[in-house]
């Protein structure tokens, strides 16, 4: 590693509407991203983007948008459309990782049609739409587990609207719970590196592999994919270029989180498995524990 160059890694997370869209535990996702970066010596700056703030795509490496109450969602929808729409589109087309939960997910689809009143227009990032079928149709409330990328994601869902996917690819297949609409066993949506989901709980604490996936995407996007092939992040977050030692990691195209230093995630996976067990998904629970520590079985 003689002629290697080291530099400090830093990421900036844009947190959209933290004051308006903060219903139940969305903050947990931010806490988890920050700490998982910090433990690897990666600096994660979190910038709040409130109503009226412009979104300059160049300034961020990752975006998060949560869910809120209906009353608070209307001005947000307006602002998203008028002020941040173009920046957000540009960021997403440029492969920026975006996590949109619940209300945020609905706002990134085409529209939200309430039981009464006019449609709320969304950004149309996901080719999907949401319909609220009125107070007589039960809300989708409860624990949820889905299949994602060969593993499981667990969380809690609580939504009145039913989301239907057009050409959008779902985030995963529902193993237990309702998902997008309680009809087609799909949950969430993916467009490029933007992920929409109904899962909170919070989502990321019990799904460390998904948290790392997002961090990995952001790192790869910022520091370039090719560089990763011969590079290595050490425990202090220094990133070494041109290391040609036998220990260099092999990067799989589909899993950017592999380059991250594994953390001690036993507690995370036990919590994950415990919820799977509660839902009666015993095999998935066993599989989750054999996947511990953020390492994927090759």
């Amino acid at each position: 590693m003689n002629d290697s160059v080291t530099r400090q890694l830093a990421l900036t997370l844009g947190h959209l509407y933290p004051d308006q869209l903060n219903l139940y535990g969305d903050r947990g996702n931010i806490i988890v991203l920050r700490r998982r970066c910090q433990q690897r010596g990666i600096e994660l700056r979190v910038v709040s983007l409130g109503l009226g703030d412009a979104l300059a795509p160049d300034e961020y490496d990752m975006l998060f948008i949560g869910g809120g109450q209906d009353r608070e969602q209307a001005p947000v929808a307006q602002d998203l459309h008028d002020t941040k729409g173009i920046g957000l589109w540009a960021a997403i087309e440029d492969d920026m990782p975006v996590l949109a939960v619940c209300g945020g997910y609905q706002l990134l689809a085409h529209y939200y049609r309430p039981a009464s009143g006019p449609d709320m227009r969304g950004l149309g990032v996901f080719d999907a739409w949401t319909i609220h079928k009125g107070p007589r149709v039960a809300r989708c409330i409860g624990d949820i587990a889905i299949n994602w990328n060969g593993s499981t994601l667990v969380g809690f869902e609580n939504h009145g609207g039913r989301t239907y996917l057009g050409t959008a690819q779902p985030l995963g297949k529902v193993l237990k719970g309702y998902g997008n609409n309680a009809e087609d066993a799909t949950e969430g949506a993916i467009y490029r590196n933007a992920y929409g989901t109904y899962m909170h709980g919070s989502l990321l604490p019990k799904n460390p592999h998904f948290a790392d996936h997002l961090i990995g995407l952001a790192l790869r996007r910022k520091y370039g994919k090719n560089d990763w092939d011969n590079s290595h992040i050490n425990e202090t977050g220094e990133w070494t270029d041109g290391a040609s030692s036998s220990e260099s990691l092999e990067i799989k195209d589909d899993d950017p989180s592999v380059v991250l230093t594994p953390l001690d995630d036993r507690l995370e996976w036990e919590a994950h498995a415990s919820l799977l067990e509660h839902m009666g998904l015993q095999d998935a629970a066993i599989a989750a524990l054999s996947n511990d520590n953020g390492l994927k079985v090759s």
């Binding site: 806490i31 700490r35 604490p205 036990e270 919590a271 415990s274 015993q282």
Partner: peptide, 28 residues
Amino acid sequence: LDLALRLKYAGVAQDKMITVTTAPLRAI
């Protein structure tokens, strides 16, 4: 386990807390 995880991310050292669940994880 969820609360232990919350406390872990709050910065409570894991050896500073004892977690007593209601039942063992069968998956282990």
